[in-house]
Simulated assay, not measured.
Amino acid sequence: MKRTHLPLNGLRVLDAAARHLSFTRAADELAVTPAAVGQQIRALEDTLGVVLFRRTAKGLELTPEGAAGLDALRAGFLQFEEAVRAMQAGQSSKTLTIAAPRDFTAKWLGARLAAYGRTDPELRFVLLGGDEELDFTQANLDLAIRLAEGPGEHEGAALGGTGHVVVGGPDAPDAAIGWPGSPAQDGTALVSVADAGLAIDAAAAGFGRACVPALLAEADLAAGRVTRVDDGPLSSRGYWLIAPTPQWRQKKVRALVAALLG
């Protein structure tokens, strides 16, 4: 019999019925009806081509054929349990591997991860650049942050809105600072930089004004490094926490997402 065709549900029912020698008590253990237990046993008998139980005056009785495989069956279930425990052991790890754009890590994420890390001395973070597409499995990622229109094919949660703000330093000239993806760049910029975080730094240095995601400018505005000159346009893109469903459901990832959203 091919491994993919193993009747695992039927074998599980066989184990319970053999221990109790009662379809009713097996049904109670498995949270199904006695009729469902009987159907599973009959289907298993058809698959194996043997009779597993007989009804006698004393009650339900295992046949020699049914008893012959029980020890190996129960050993197999114990190995299944060990395999599940081994797979779940990874969830006890408190190391989180996160990919995020470098400017987002510098301007917003880093300080929040540091604060979150202080809540549990066992927490560890591995931070990767997230400016390119990353394979979650290949990079062993738990979570990624993207400037995007949505989570795409993954699970996700939006961080803040999609608003932008125009910021400038003291006595900044009325000149644009350009960066790839800037929603408000008309004509030639006085200076062009690699990302929105560097655009904020350029504005603080006095090069001009930068239109950047409002979330990214929060810390610099609060510190007085730049001032808010104007509201920028809404964009279809915002910052998203994303991960495939298995990673998203990890306890450590859910806790981190809740902390970042909070």
Score class of each variant (00 low, 15 high):
Arg3Asp: 01
Thr4Gln: 11
Leu8Tyr: 07
Asn9Trp: 15
Leu11Trp: 09
Leu11Gly: 02
Arg12Gly: 10
Arg12Asp: 01
Arg12Trp: 11
Leu14Met: 11
His20Ile: 02
Leu30Val: 08
Val32Leu: 13
Pro34Trp: 05
Ala35Glu: 03
Gly38Ser: 12
Gly38Lys: 02
Gly38Thr: 00
Gly38Met: 08
Gln40Ser: 14
Ile41Cys: 03
Ala43Ile: 07
Leu44Trp: 11
Glu45Ala: 04
Thr56Cys: 02
Thr56Asp: 03
Gly59Phe: 08
Thr63Ala: 11
Glu65Gln: 13
Ala67Trp: 03
Ala68Thr: 08
Ala68Ser: 15
Asp71Glu: 14
Ala72Pro: 08
Ala75Lys: 15
Ala83Glu: 14
Val84His: 08
Ala86Thr: 07
Leu96Arg: 00
Ala100Glu: 06
Arg102Ile: 03
Phe104Cys: 11
Phe104Asp: 03
Thr105Gln: 08
Gly110Val: 00
Gly110Leu: 02
Ala115Leu: 12
Gly117Phe: 13
Thr119Leu: 14
Asp120Lys: 05
Pro121Asp: 09
Arg124Ile: 11
Leu128Gly: 13
Glu133Phe: 08
Leu134Tyr: 04
Asp135Ile: 14
Gln138Phe: 06
Asn140Cys: 02
Asn140Thr: 05
Asn140Leu: 06
Leu141Pro: 15
Asp142Lys: 09
Ala144Glu: 13
Ala144Met: 15
Ile145Glu: 01
Glu149Gly: 13
Gly150Arg: 09
Gly150Trp: 06
Pro151Glu: 04
Gly152Glu: 05
Gly163Met: 04
Gly163Cys: 07
Val166Asn: 05
Gly169Cys: 05
Gly169His: 09
Pro170Ser: 09
Ala172Asp: 00
Asp174Asn: 10
Ile177Trp: 11
Pro180Gly: 01
Gly181Leu: 09
Gly181Val: 05
Ser182His: 00
Ala184Leu: 03
Asp186Val: 06
Leu190Ala: 15
Val191Ala: 14
Val193Arg: 03
Ala194Ser: 15
Asp201Gly: 09
Asp201Pro: 01
Ala202Thr: 10
Ala204Asp: 05
Cys211His: 10
Val212Ala: 07
Ala214Cys: 01
Leu215Ser: 00
Leu216Phe: 03
Val226Ser: 00
Arg228Glu: 15
Ser236Glu: 12
Arg237Met: 01
Trp240Pro: 04
Trp240Asn: 02
Ala243Ser: 03
Ala243Gln: 06
Pro244Asp: 00
Lys252Ala: 13
Leu256Trp: 11
Val257Trp: 02
Ala258Ser: 14
Ala259Phe: 06
Gly262Asp: 08
